[in-house]
Amino acid sequence: MRLCMICLLVAAAGLLGGCVEAEPMKSDTHDPVSLTVWQTYWDMESGAEDYAALHKKVDAVVYFAVSYDENGVPYVPEEVRAMAAVQCGKRTKNYLSFTNDIVGTHRVEKDRALLWRLLGDDASVERTVEGIVALAAEFDVHGVELDYENFAKDEKLLRRYLVFIERLYAACTQNHLELRIVLEPSVPFDAGFVKGPAYVVMLYNLYGKHSGPGAKADGAFIDKTIAKMEALPEPHAVAFATGGCLWQDYGPFGLMCGERRFITAREAVHLAAEHHAATERDAASAALHFRYAVGGHTTEVWYADSETLNAWITRAAQRGVTSVSIWRLGGNTDLGKIRTH
């Protein structure tokens, strides 16, 4: 009886804790992928350094970004004009990106009310399409990128968005412009997206300022999202993010939390060295993380280096993805080590 009880306890322990751990995420050789990178207007100098290290592997550059003023008029930062004035060469395509951010006295990111002004009826859709195509022609780019966000939870706005991208694609085709559309992973991919544009799904911000500590992506998140993308018309692409995030004094369930902010990989490396923090690589995400305490506060940092990005790209390529975008140039330490095959 006693022996049987021991056997049962051992078996129970095996069921509860004896599961074989999943193999850690890591980079490996894979089928070739094309590579697109974002260059932001606020980090041109550092971005140029990253581009110099990576440019032989880059197929396209996106100039980020055109936004709007309080009246819904497109606003182009002077830095974007400067970026567009420097052509990347015949081999590298370039795109002009449009966001639904509002600039001015009160900056608003991913503003849903702005989208209603831009897309609310057929007349406003036509004006928005004409404005986008006109700017693309002015800057003599290969194509347009649409990075409107924060609309999917409003079903009526989602329907207006679908009408808009169909008309935008038609106008781009007529004007010999390519169109790539960036989508959040929470968007319903089966909503009825028009065939023709390239759809780029953001595989990042799994963890971030909205949550507790963790990586911007992990294997399970990548697998789940790529599987959902089968509902989208092809061609498909995915986007991964450099850098990471820090959380100060994060308590259970977020009941206590101090500063939370995104940081670059360069900032993360500096913080680890400054505070003599031991850095570890997470098996589920290949991301690096560390903790340090100073002035009575504890801070946890998670970030991606080139090994992290290569592991994520490997995972995506193994699941049939042939095009990858990297958000973003600037603030990295070893971006030139990214592999495209």
Score class of each variant (00 low, 15 high):
Y161M: 09
N175S: 15
C88H: 15
Q318F: 00
G320P: 09
W302D: 06
F64A: 14
L9E: 05
H236I: 08
A265I: 02
L96S: 06
E280S: 09
E166Q: 11
V301E: 07
T40Q: 11
I263P: 02
R180D: 15
A12R: 01
F139S: 02
E79G: 00
L3C: 00
N150D: 07
E126L: 05
L288T: 00
R160A: 03
I226T: 06
A85L: 11
S46P: 08
P213C: 14
E184H: 14
R160E: 04
F262P: 03
D121N: 11
R315G: 11
S306A: 13
Y292Q: 03
P188F: 07
H275M: 08
Y51C: 02
V200F: 08
W302S: 07
C257G: 07
G219M: 07
L9Y: 08
K156P: 02
I165S: 02
A123V: 06
Y63W: 14
A215M: 12
D111Q: 07
H142F: 13
C7G: 15
L162P: 10
A12K: 09
W116C: 06
T308I: 10
G196N: 07
D249T: 06
N310K: 05
Y63D: 10
Y63I: 00
P74Q: 01
L96Y: 03
F164W: 11
L183H: 07
C172R: 13
I326E: 05
A316M: 12
A191R: 02
L255T: 14
V200S: 09
G47R: 03
T173C: 10
A60E: 12
T299Y: 04
D190S: 13
G14D: 11
D282H: 15
G14W: 15
L179E: 08
V182I: 12
M25D: 12
A316Y: 13
F262K: 02
E178W: 05
M256P: 00
M229R: 02
A304C: 11
D43Y: 10
E267R: 10
N310S: 02
V182H: 13
P197K: 03
P77R: 04
M25A: 14
A171P: 12
L9H: 06
